[in-house]
């Protein structure tokens, strides 16, 4: 494929062209200025896909589950995209993205698109451009977009704010407690999955989780009560039930009208994040000039970080 400007890629992506979609995803990730108008155009075509965040601690069987869930979605005739997010190296910024491994069984089906992204250490957790990647898939006609994250903590909370439905995966035998509590992600789940339920100790994990939910430790958002779905990759059980539960959640959000509030919250967060990013980029652009000067003042303690930032913003206004 020869070089194509982003605006020329948009009609192809809207028609479902794999290569055009893939190129736009790369430009979403790099934050390319050339692609800005193209993403504005794509955004007008979004709003149809159901966005599902899936998270869980390493070893919870999450990748296997995502692969099976994608297969179940395909079996029902819907198109599915997966954004699989892995951490970047804090040293080089590079990353090894291994999550395609489990996707082997899905190979060759044009109704499944898997894209790996690195966290890139971006402020706020989610991979830079991950939500624009979701826009690309949404606009290109994928019915369901699964965002899969590894790790623990901030990333997971960010997913909950970016997804319509959030699934948290736990597994028996990974430790004494429910790992989701440790990770601080119990509260964000709309659906809990307990994987590896062929194991003898799975019942205890399920019981612990249900008790926790009953005690109200995981305060539900709105009228939906978080549900627990047991799965077993070995016995090939529970995946269809999980998909049904995700669909039920979507319907419940629509019926209660809460979907609007969720979408508004997602929009607000994206707006603020975009604002932060724009400011940050403009601050950093003159890294060796103005920024370095302010940093020197900070080092002498003659200026505080907050005052320095206020000064920079005021100057941006003057130069605008």
């Amino acid at each position: 494929m020869v070089y194509l400007a982003s605006s020329d890629l948009v009609p192809k992506a809207l028609a479902g062209d794999t290569r055009a979609i893939a190129r736009l995803l790369t430009r979403a990730e790099s934050g390319s200025a050339e692609a800005r108008p193209a993403f504005d155009e794509l955004f007008r075509h979004t709003g149809r896909a159901h966005i599902v965040g899936i998270t869980g601690v390493p070893g919870s069987g999450k990748s296997t589950l995502v692969a099976r869930l994608a297969a179940a979605i395909r079996a029902g005739g819907r198109k599915v995209a997966i954004v699989a997010i892995d951490p970047s190296s804090p040293f080089s910024g590079g990353a090894i993205l291994g999550d395609r491994i489990r996707m082997g069984e899905l190979g060759g089906d044009p109704g499944v698109f898997v894209r790996s992204m690195a966290t890139r250490g971006s402020m706020g957790g989610l991979a830079r451009g991950a939500l624009e990647a979701v826009d690309v898939f949404d606009a290109a006609g994928y019915d369901i977009v699964l965002i899969e994250t590894v790790g623990v903590g901030q990333d997971e909370v960010d997913i909950a704010r970016a997804a319509h439905t959030t699934v948290v995966v736990s597994a028996p035998g990974l430790g004494d407690d429910i790992q989701a509590i440790k990770a601080g992600i119990l509260e964000i789940a709309d659906v809990h999955v307990v994987s590896k339920c062929d194991r003898a100790d799975a019942d205890k994990t399920i019981a612990d989780l249900k008790n926790m939910l009953m005690l109200g430790l995981a305060s539900a958002r709105g009228t939906w009560r978080p549900q627990v779905v047991p799965t077993s990759a070995v016995r090939d059980e529970g995946v269809q039930e999980l998909l049904t539960m995700i669909d039920r959640h979507r319907e419940a959000l629509a019926a209660s009208g809460e979907i609007d509030a969720r979408c508004a919250a997602i929009a607000e967060r994206r707006l603020l994040a975009a604002g932060e990013e724009i400011l940050r980029d403009r601050f950093v652009r003159d890294r060796h000039g103005r920024l370095a000067g302010l940093l020197a003042q900070l080092a002498r303690r003659s200026l505080s970080p907050h005052s320095a930032a206020t000064l920079l913003i005021a100057e941006l206004g003057e130069n605008a």
Partner: peptide
Amino acid sequence: RDAGMDVI
């Protein structure tokens, strides 16, 4: 990766 690339 250590040279800053994304490796799949």
